[in-house]
Nucleic acid binder design. Structure first.
Length: 594
RNA sequence: GCGGGUGUAGUUCAGUUGGUUAGAACGCUUCCCUGUCACGGAAGAGGUCGCGGGUUCGAGUCCCGUCACUCGCGCCA
């Protein structure tokens, strides 16, 4: 007979009645009736009820201890079956027990969700992972990754591993650095993405690369952003943007459809047409708009410029080059004053002056600032924003980029307060035509707005045009329900165009050679046109699991301050280690005092 | 770096206008119970009210500072 088990805890059925079996697992729940004792025994496959009579060892056993039982599968008496359990028609009558491991009193409940906070869950993550929710989400993640590999291989892609210890890159996020023992004073960097390596694979003649790639970025976290994360990274040669879209819409769309019923309710998957970056910003105030939100932005600067409109708070901003963006909220004019006050409070809490609004009641404007807008101007406002009886319109006035960004957030907030976000659907689409450059206000210079390696639309001619800020990049994102799922581009494979592209952003040829010489050299020995993108694996799983936080779909993960309370990372190191690495600490005073 | 929220038993939380010995549920300990499946019943243990300072006759409650966690902003080419 097997040492630990003949069956799993999710396996036994009526057909097994009469068999002698061995089960091993955790004590999920215990119900002691004095003479008779029930234990729900759990492993990763399920639960089985085992029954014991007068067993002193089992009577003492604590929840989450690990035991092995031998016994006989029997039919449950009529009226005592449990339709909620797949194994609920049978039970195992215990003949002998081996306690593999006694559990101490657990810090939070495993058998149910007792709402324990993230702190304590992360400290005892192995217990947290035993719980049904985490257990199934981590399994979902495995299934999604398996599906990604299966689908990518089916499309003819090959998986490559690329270095984890690599060179620091000057652009983008902060790198995680690793000191070199053999080369005093030098550092490796953990990759923010395998960007250069995957392009080098295209130079190497492989024309379809992918990898479930670990990526590292030393920037402050968010609910959907961690220090380390995984991407489905891919690259193809001899392709245009539409070729990438065709392949990846198929792969990712297929995965969404495959797992859209994970939560128990089947969700729809919709593919929407590509959207230009400029349209996304102007219509939604975001480069990753949630299209389940029906609200849109419009520009009503002209209305507030009118001589007969006397709202001076906006006029002053407009004179300094500002704009007025507006959001039409249908059929909310009858909402209580508190609806509008709450939005105003939210706006002020976010650092705005407030969220001005006008409601349309009985054909005329109403609300605090309506008195500054005479009938004729109100008419123009109605026309621009499509206002109808019973609607409200909210205003955001600021410099254009700030106004758009804040209007985008207000759009989401108003949608939530109105409770009109569409449910049960994934809305996937590509955002295209990102600008190549932006003006960096702080440095007072032109800089890359996204990936410096993407091909400018129009090539060298476009870069030699009069206004670099008007040049578009062959750069795109994939967006779903307000999350940026992927980012990518058709790459610049021409050294001459790259030199010019970097020159515009103020990087000399020397700097370019020094930082990207390896890749630039490769371009000089025959580079195929190529492009690709990278999808955030964890964000996809998060959407499929309907969880608002990445930490809910990762087995082991750091907290919001990028600490691991279970492993105690990051941690101090010894003097000897520092010496080996030729390092001396220079700590801020605050840390030294503590 | 900045802002919002939270911090009371192992866990999740309640705690009134500043006023008796700080409560509940779950968990834990002991006992009773032969058909439960969130078993039931009885008794019990368990608290640096995040930390420090202040106001007050008196502080979980008010004030100042500080720390931790969390969400967001900045940042994330």
């Amino acid at each position: 007979m097997h040492s630990y088990r003949s069956h799993t805890c999710g396996q036994l059925r009526k057909s097994n009645v009469g068999e002698s079996v061995k089960l091993s697992g955790w004590v999920h729940r215990k119900r002691d009736h004095g003479g008779v004792l029930f234990i729900d025994l759990r492993d990763t496959h399920g639960l089985t009820q085992v029954v014991a009579e007068g067993n002193a060892e089992l009577e003492k056993i604590r929840a989450e201890s690990v035991i092995t039982i031998e016994g006989e599968v029997v039919n449950r008496a009529e009226g005592t079956t449990n339709a909620k359990m797949p194994t609920g028609e049978i039970e195992v009558v215990v003949k002998s027990v081996t306690v593999q491991s006694h559990a101490e009193v657990i810090p939070f409940q495993v058998a149910e969700d007792d709402g324990a906070g993230e702190d304590v869950r992360l400290k005892y993550r192995y217990l947290d992972l035993r719980r049904e929710g985490m257990h199934s989400r981590v399994r979902l993640r495995n299934n999604v990754i398996a599906a990604m590999r299966r689908r990518m291989w089916a499309e003819g892609f090959q998986e490559f591993n690329t270095p984890i210890l690599t060179a620091s890159s000057p652009e983008g996020a902060r790198d995680y650095l690793v000191p070199s023992r053999l080369h005093p004073g030098k550092f490796y960097a953990l990759p923010q993405a395998p960007q250069q390596f995957k392009q080098l694979l295209m130079m190497s003649g492989f024309d379809r690369y992918f990898q479930i790639a670990p990526c590292f970025r030393d920037e402050d976290g968010r609910a959907d952003r961690l220090a380390e994360f995984y991407q489905l990274d891919m690259e193809m040669s001899f392709v245009e943007q539409e070729d990438i879209f065709r392949v990846m819409t198929g792969v990712i769309g297929g995965i969404f459809e495959e797992f859209a019923d994970f939560t128990g309710e089947k969700r729809r998957v919709e593919f929407l047409p590509n959207m230009k970056y400029a349209d996304a910003m102007n219509t939604y105030g975001s480069d990753k708009p949630d299209l389940r939100n029906p609200l849109v932005l419009c520009d009503v600067t002209d209305v507030f410029k009118r001589d007969d409109v006397t709202f001076n708070a906006f006029k002053g901003v407009i004179e300094k080059g500002g704009v007025v963006k507006a959001i039409r909220a249908p059929k909310v004019a009858d909402r209580p004053r508190s609806f509008f006050d709450k939005l105003n409070d939210w706006a002020r809490g976010e650092g705005a002056v407030g969220l001005g609004y006008i409601t349309v009641k009985d054909g005329v404007g109403a609300g605090p600032i309506a008195k500054f807008v005479p009938a004729e101007a109100q008419g123009q406002l109605n026309k621009i924003a499509g206002l109808e009886e019973g609607d409200a319109i909210f205003f955001i006035c600021d410099k254009e980029d700030k106004a758009l960004k804040f209007a985008g957030r207000a759009r989401d907030k108003i949608c939530d307060d109105m409770d009109i976000r569409e449910k049960g659907v994934y809305k996937l689409f590509w955002i295209v035509d990102f600008p190549m450059y932006e003006f960096d206000e702080k440095a007072q210079k032109i800089d890359f707005s996204h990936n410096p390696f993407s091909m400018p639309q129009g090539g060298l001619d476009a870069l030699n045009g009069p206004d670099p800020l008007k040049v578009l990049a062959t750069q795109y994102d994939c967006v779903c329900n307000g999350y940026e799922l992927a980012s990518g581009g058709i790459r610049n494979h021409r050294p001459d165009i790259m030199e010019r592209a970097f020159a515009i952003a103020g990087y000399s040829k020397d700097v370019l050679e020094k930082k990207f010489g390896g890749m630039l050299n490769a371009f000089r020995y025959g580079a195929p046109p190529h492009g690709g993108c990278a999808f955030g694996v964890d964000r996809i799983v998060m959407l499929l699991a309907d969880e608002p936080n990445l930490r809910e779909v990762y087995a082991f993960v750091m907290n919001g301050q990028y600490e691991d309370p279970m492993m105690n990372a990051p941690s101090d190191i010894t003097e000897a280690q520092l010496k080996d690495l030729h390092l001396k600490l220079n700590l801020p005073k605050k840390v030294e005092a503590a």
